[in-house]
Design a binder for these strands. Structure first.
Lengths: 345, 345
DNA sequence: TTGTACGCGTTATCAG
DNA sequence: CTGATAACGCGTACAA
C-alpha cells in the first residue's frame, strides 16, 4: 500500500511549483500556459493522480456531501425519497450519507452531530425529535436544513410538506361517494403531526357527511419495521371486525398496514372488495402488485426527494434563501380494492 | 454564520497550548493532569465545540466512512442489505455513503472514483462492471473491498457469496417433490453470473429428474426499476401460457417477477395455487403480504449486509487479512403459493 | 504567466 | 505532565 501521489509529487515530476499543478488540476480557470497545462495533465494521468478531497475540503470548509436522516430505509416510501435525493445530488457532484433514525430521538441527535463533525452543510430530515432547539442552533452555525414529511414548526427551516389533511379528506370522500357510510380508520399511534392530520382529514370528511368516525388506533410504540405495520394492520382489523355494526370499508394510514388489513380479511374469508372495501395511503409500488390492487393515496416520494435536494442545493449556493415552503398535493390512485355499493342500498 | 470554534480557540480561552486541548478532546489517553483535563472539557462544552473531522482525517489519512455501491436502493433486497451495513457501521462510528449504480458500468466507475477522492478506505459492492482491473489497482492503493451478491472472479477481493446454484436446485426440487413435472422458469436476461447460476441449478434439478427445462428469458436489457421486474413477470407469463402443454408450476428468478406472474395469472382467471403453483426467489418481506403468500427462497439480505460490514471493518483494522470467502446458504420459505398435486396423478 | 509561502484544523514528535 | 512546531494535501494571496 504505497502512498498516493499528491500535487507536490506531480510538481516535482514536471519541474514546476505545486501551485501551478493545483491551478491546472482543479480547473480553477487561473491562467496557465497551454503547453504547461497539457504537460501537467498528461503527467497527472500517467501518475494516476487522485485528488484528495479532504485537503480541498479542509481548505474550502465545505464537504461535497449532504446528509439524509429518515426513520428507516426499509420502508419503500423512504427508499424512494432517497433515490430521488441521490439522483439530484450525483448530478451536482454531491454524495449522500444515509442515516436511519429508527424513530429514536437519541439516534437522530447522534447522527446530526456526526454530520456536523464531517462538515456536512446540507441536511434533509424527516425528524422525529420534538426538541428543535438544537437544530436551530446548528442552522446558526451554517447548516442548511430541509424538512420533509414531518413538519417542523420553526422559522428558517424550509419545508417540503404534504397536505395530509386534504389527503385524509380525499380518501374518505372517495369512500363516501362510493356509498360507504360505515368507514373504519385504522392507524398507528397518533403521536406525530402527519398521522394526526390524516386522521383529522378523515374525521372532518365524516363529520361533513353527518357520520360518526370509527377509529382503531395502535397503542404500541413500536420500533420501526416494515413487517410491524403489516402486523399492526392485522391486529387492528381483528378489533374492527368485532365492532357492530361492521364497517363496509376500512381506511388504513399507510399501505403496509392496508396490506395487513387485506391479509386479515382474506384469512377471515372476507372478500375484498366484494364484502369489504380497503383504502391505503402512500402509493408504494407493490400496492399495484397485490391482489386486489390497492386503491390508495399517492404521496409523491421520489419527486419529494428530488425536490428536497434541489431546494437544498439552492440554499447552499446561497440563492439568497428564498425561504418558502412547498406543499405537495395528494392524488388518488383508483385501483381495485374499493367497490361502489350505492346500487345495493 | 460565525466560524466554528477550534481547538486553538479553546486553547486561548484556557490559557494552554492547542496540543493539550487536542490530547484531552480526542481522548488520546495521553496523560494530562486531571484538573486541567476537566477545565478544558468544561470550556469546550460551554463554547459548544464541534470537532472538525476533516482536519483529523487529513492528518490520519482515513475517513470514517464506507461506501456501498448497489444497483438500486428501490429494490427491497438491496435496501435491506444497506440497512444491515448501516447498523454495523454506526455501531463502529462509521458513516455510510450510498451509491446507486443503476446497472450502469460508467456510473459505477464514477462512484468508485468519488469514493477514492473522499479517502474512503472501505467499499462494499455489488458490481456490474466486468472489467475488474481498475478495482484491483485501487486495492493496491489501500482500498478494502467486499463483494456481495455478484461474484468477482479475482484474487484478494473478499466475497460474501450466496449459493445461487444450490438455491435454484432447492426450489426446483421442492416443486418436483410436490408432484410437478412441467415446471417453467421465467428469468430476466441471463447476463450475470448470479442469474446464470440460479438457472443452472434449476436445469440441473430438472435433468436429474429426467425432465426437460422450460425457460422463458427476457431479452430486454432494462434500466433498473422495481416495477420493470413486475412487468417482465407478466410478459413472460403470457408467453409461457401459450406453450403446450402448459406448465403446472412457474419458478421466477426474483420475487418482484413472481408478483408479476401471480398478477398475470389472476388476470387470466387462473387460481394460485389451485390451478398453477408459483415459486419466487429473494424472500423480501412483502412476499408475505400478498395473496397467496409467496413460497420462495430466502436470500439473507439484512444478514448479508451486517456480515459484509463486519468483514470490511476487520479488514480495515488490518486483522492480517484472513482472506476467506463466505458462502451463505439458501433456505426455503414454505408459504402458500405452491400446491401439492401428487394425489391428483 | 509562474513561484513562494501561508493557512485550513488536527495530531504527532520532540523538548522541556 | 505541558508546549512549541511540523506535518497532512490543497488553494490562494502576494510577489516576481
Amino acid at each position: 500500500m504505497k502512498k498516493q501521489t499528491t500535487i507536490h509529487d506531480i510538481a516535482k515530476m514536471a519541474n514546476v511549483s505545486s501551485a501551478t499543478v493545483s491551478r491546472v488540476l482543479s480547473n480553477s480557470g487561473y491562467p496557465v500556459s497551454k503547453e504547461l497545462k497539457e504537460r501537467i495533465q498528461r503527467i497527472a494521468k500517467e501518475a494516476n493522480y487522485i485528488p484528495n478531497m479532504l485537503g480541498k475540503q479542509l481548505k474550502k470548509n465545505t464537504s461535497q456531501t449532504i446528509g439524509v436522516i429518515i426513520p428507516s430505509i426499509i420502508n419503500p416510501f423512504y427508499s424512494s425519497v432517497i433515490f430521488g435525493v441521490e439522483e439530484i445530488a450525483r448530478q451536482n457532484g454531491f454524495t449522500v450519507i444515509v442515516c436511519n433514525s429508527l424513530q429514536d430521538p437519541s439516534l437522530e441527535e447522534e447522527y446530526i452531530r456526526t454530520i456536523m463533525e464531517k462538515q456536512v452543510k446540507g441536511l434533509i430530515i424527516s425528524s422525529i425529535s420534538t426538541n428543535k432547539e438544537h437544530l436551530k442552533q446548528l442552522i446558526q452555525m451554517g447548516l442548511n436544513v430541509i424538512a420533509i414529511d414531518q413538519k417542523i414548526e420553526e422559522d428558517n427551516i424550509n419545508q417540503i410538506e404534504f397536505d395530509y389533511h386534504k389527503a385524509g379528506c380525499l380518501a374518505t370522500r372517495y369512500l363516501l361517494e362510493h356509498g360507504h357510510r360505515l368507514i373504519g380508520y385504522v392507524t398507528s399511534k397518533l403521536d406525530r403531526p402527519s398521522r394526526r392530520s390524516i386522521y383529522e382529514g378523515y374525521a372532518a370528511a365524516m363529520k361533513d357527511a353527518g357520520l360518526k368516525p370509527l377509529v382503531v388506533e395502535s397503542q404500541t410504540d413500536e420500533v420501526y419495521n416494515a413487517i410491524t405495520d403489516f402486523d399492526t394492520g392485522k391486529q387492528l382489523t381483528k378489533k374492527l371486525l368485532n365492532q357492530s355494526p361492521r364497517p363496509t370499508a376500512i381506511f388504513a394510514c399507510n399501505d403496509m398496514m392496508a396490506f395487513g388489513v387485506i391479509n386479515e380479511l382474506s384469512r377471515c374469508d372476507i372478500q375484498v372488495p366484494q364484502q369489504m372495501s380497503v383504502m391505503g395511503f402512500d402509493g408504494i409500488d407493490v400496492g399495484e402488485m397485490i391482489h386486489p390492487p390497492l386503491t390508495t393515496i399517492k404521496q409523491p416520494d421520489y419527486e419529494m426527494g428530488k425536490m428536497a435536494c434541489k431546494m437544498l442545493l439552492d440554499m447552499m449556493n446561497g440563492e439568497d434563501s428564498p425561504m418558502f415552503d412547498i406543499t405537495l398535493q395528494p392524488k388518488l390512485l383508483e385501483r381495485k380494492s374499493v367497490m361502489d355499493i350505492r346500487s345495493e342500498q
